[in-house]
Write a protein that binds this DNA or RNA. Structure first.
Lengths: 231, 231
DNA sequence: AGTAAATATTGTTGTTTGTACAATAACTAA
DNA sequence: TTAGTTATTGTACAAACAACAATATTTACT
């Protein structure tokens, strides 16, 4: 091990904040925690904490998310890194945002560690958050919308079995446009979906057929043929 | 100022590494420096260094790049963040990659500070680099290729005035495909280009007309109309 | 059982965009 | 003037897109 020649530079800390997106009532929701600690005690925040000295980033992101919310087994992706010198009142803390997409109904969340509460909040009702978390949240949401156009991630938000209308509504919500139902169905023809014999229940009109995403076939056609997802 | 309650966590350091891409002889080149310092002394590396305690990230990236290479006035964009615990032999150093696109001929580069040499290296001749810089370079190159498809950044690499063939060759190189010349020209019709009365010189065949990118009109049509660049 | 209401699903048509390839024009160098 | 080379335009067909009409299926109500 070399002798460290620049001790003064080892005064930083590094944190990870995970923006967890879910879909409820046709709107994107975000998982927030209420801080039981200073600074910003009692304010809402994106779940996040400091990385341990010998921890890899992706592991740390999983650990931190689980410690605060008991949320587990979600696929976290790196987003942007934020490092304004004054973003943390207690010192120089640089943070990387991670994000994940989940089906809200399928996961149990529970406040834990220094999180006093956890809850899903519709995107348009996000309050003022701790630190620069509003900034982080907004820029990660923009990233999500961009990714929706060129990666098949809508299926991570939709229920495992969904109607084509639910899928369409998600895109209409994200892109802020209305789409023609007939044309939408033609447009998504190349996306490999499994058509089930199952239908919606408890609807007071003709129930829609349920579909699910065929990820195996998707893998195959993206690698062997040069298929490129796009909306 | 709050009292810091977790001193042990303030043992990290944070660096920025800038991947500078340029185009030469139809191939992407990358600006590398030769390290005059341990660790990895005498090895080639992406220009990068530690961030000062009260420095914002984007400013730091510019400063560091200038100190090592005298390269100035380039637009740096954030890419991925790398934080494997063992990526730096002298301690826990997390790094964010930045990247920029430049016209090689227009900029003067010069080794400075602890950079012993600077040079442009064609992408396919990149040697083994210090730290995890090969990993950083490769993933940033992938990001560049992706961005080429949905942002008009090819014009930052091409000469200010370029032929349509040069533009086509850049995309053929980046995407690894051949394109039909006639169809390429039709495809780029919606992109606002200024057609000059100038032509290639010193070519031993019919010289091609020179074009330049009309960024003003591009701004206008992306904001007012909903035009979306794509290749 | 029959019918209205609501939504799912399929079709039709015209327009735009993409692809393959042919034809022509423009310039250099000898 | 001509051969060689490349730029540029044109044509014809196929595929994708957009707007809208028409039909089919189911639920809820009378």
């Amino acid at each position: 091990m070399y002798k460290i020649a620049f001790d003064d530079f080892f005064n930083y800390s590094f944190s990870l904040d995970s923006v967890i997106f879910g879909l409820r009532n046709g709107e994107i929701n975000v998982l927030l925690i209420k801080r039981a600690l200073e600074p910003f005690k009692n304010m809402w925040a994106i779940p996040g904490d400091l990385v341990y000295p010998d921890e890899d980033l992706s592991n740390a992101a999983e650990r931190i998310l689980f410690e605060l919310t008991k949320l587990n087994n979600v696929e976290l992706h790196q987003a942007q890194t934020f490092g304004h010198p004054k973003r943390h009142p207690q010192g120089r803390v640089i943070t990387s945002a991670y994000f994940a997409l989940v089906r809200i109904e399928e996961f149990h969340v529970e406040a834990s560690s220094w999180a006093e509460e956890v809850k899903w909040v519709p995107f348009h009702e996000i309050p003022e958050l701790a630190f620069d978390h509003n900034l982080i949240l907004n820029s990660t949401f923009e990233l999500l919308k961009k990714k929706l156009t060129y990666e098949p991630i809508c299926f991570d938000l939709l229920p495992k079995r969904f109607t084509l209308n639910e899928m369409q509504q998600l895109y209409e919500y994200a892109f802020g446009v209305e789409m023609d139902k007939a044309n939408f169905r033609k447009k998504i023809k190349p996306i490999p979906l499994i058509s089930h014999d199952e239908k919606q229940i408890n609807v007071k009109h003709r129930p829609a057929k349920l579909f699910s995403f065929n990820s195996d076939v998707y893998e195959k056609i993206t690698t062997t043929e040069g298929y490129q997802f796009k909306m």
